[in-house]
Design a protein around this nucleic acid. Structure first.
Length: 271
DNA sequence: CCCGATTCCTGTAGGC
DNA sequence: TGCCTACAGGAATCGG
């Protein structure tokens, strides 16, 4: 599922093929995604040259001279850069045609993704404005987490997945990071000592780095910009491994439901 | 302010 | 074999 590593993998996969290229046409076949695609987007983007592609949290920012296109992959979305001659697939919702005979295609069976357009500074966009720090930035620190959660009773797993706290960490990597940090997913975030937050910050970074290196995690839909799946699923320590032995201590991994979401943890390694 | 529940969507797996 | 239900999950939004 597209969390930070999958979005970053996508960015790295498509950036070389689209940066500096001109958009010849935009074909929207399904306007109703998580948010409606702005009606003016094809006209705004057509004819412009891609200046570069950045990432903010799970959003891709496609920079043009006169604005920024925001792309979010939701939970089943993928972007592939392929030959313009390739036949369309089911759930290919948006097709960008470039001047190098390549086309970028957004495929999203569940349509939780979004494609938006803004001419204001992108960081002012309502969907980006309240985002927390990037996990690899200095702003994401034990001090920051400790202060932010001082009086919070919500479970740390839920807190980690809140994009206002830190961006990019979804359901899979939240479970993985908490395992690495030795913290129980249901522990109240306000009751975690500073040294344990130090471990958590390092764990979040470690698991995201490992996943990026593996090209992301593919459980079902995800493919990178080149159409290949990610291979981090094989390295998952607890996610999806209920009743299988913990890779550290062999105790059976447990499953827990937190706010309609599945969490996985080792009852011996995580307190 | 905080926090948990609900909501959008489709494909798939499991039960009977 | 086929029907039905549960589940997967990012994240905005709503209600307490």
């Amino acid at each position: 599922m597209p969390e930070l590593p999958e979005v970053e993998t996508t960015r790295r996969g498509i950036a070389p093929g689209v940066s500096g290229r001109q958009v010849l046409a935009v074909d929207v076949r399904q306007w109703a995604l998580r948010w409606p695609i702005p009606a003016e987007l094809p006209a705004r983007v057509t004819g412009q040259v891609v200046r570069g592609i950045e990432r903010r949290g799970k959003y891709l920012l496609v920079r043009f001279e006169h604005g920024t296109m925001l792309v979010h992959l939701g939970m089943s979305g993928s972007l592939r850069l392929i030959s313009a001659a390739e036949p369309l697939r089911r759930h290919d919702h948006v097709i960008w045609q470039f001047d190098n005979d390549l086309s970028l295609r957004l495929n999203d069976p569940r349509r939780f993704g979004s494609v938006l357009w803004t001419e204001a500074p992108a960081e002012h966009h309502p969907l980006l404005r309240d985002l927390g720090p990037e996990p690899f930035s200095e702003a994401f620190s034990a001090e920051y987490l400790k202060r932010l959660t001082a009086h919070r009773r919500a479970a740390i797993k839920t807190t980690l997945m809140d994009a206002r706290v830190v961006v990019g960490v979804g359901n899979i990597y939240a479970s993985e990071a908490l395992f690495l940090a030795g913290i129980h997913p249901a522990r109240a975030s306000g009751r975690i000592a500073h040294p344990r937050y130090e471990r958590l910050v390092a764990a979040v970074r470690q698991v995201l780095e490992e996943a990026i290196a593996a090209g992301g995690t593919t459980l079902r839909d995800f493919v990178g910009g080149d159409g290949r799946p990610g291979y981090f699923a094989q390295q998952l320590r607890v996610y999806g491994r209920a009743s299988q032995p913990c890779r550290a201590c062999a105790a059976p991994v447990r499953h827990l439901r937190q706010g309609q979401r599945s969490s996985y943890f080792c009852p011996d390694c995580q307190k």
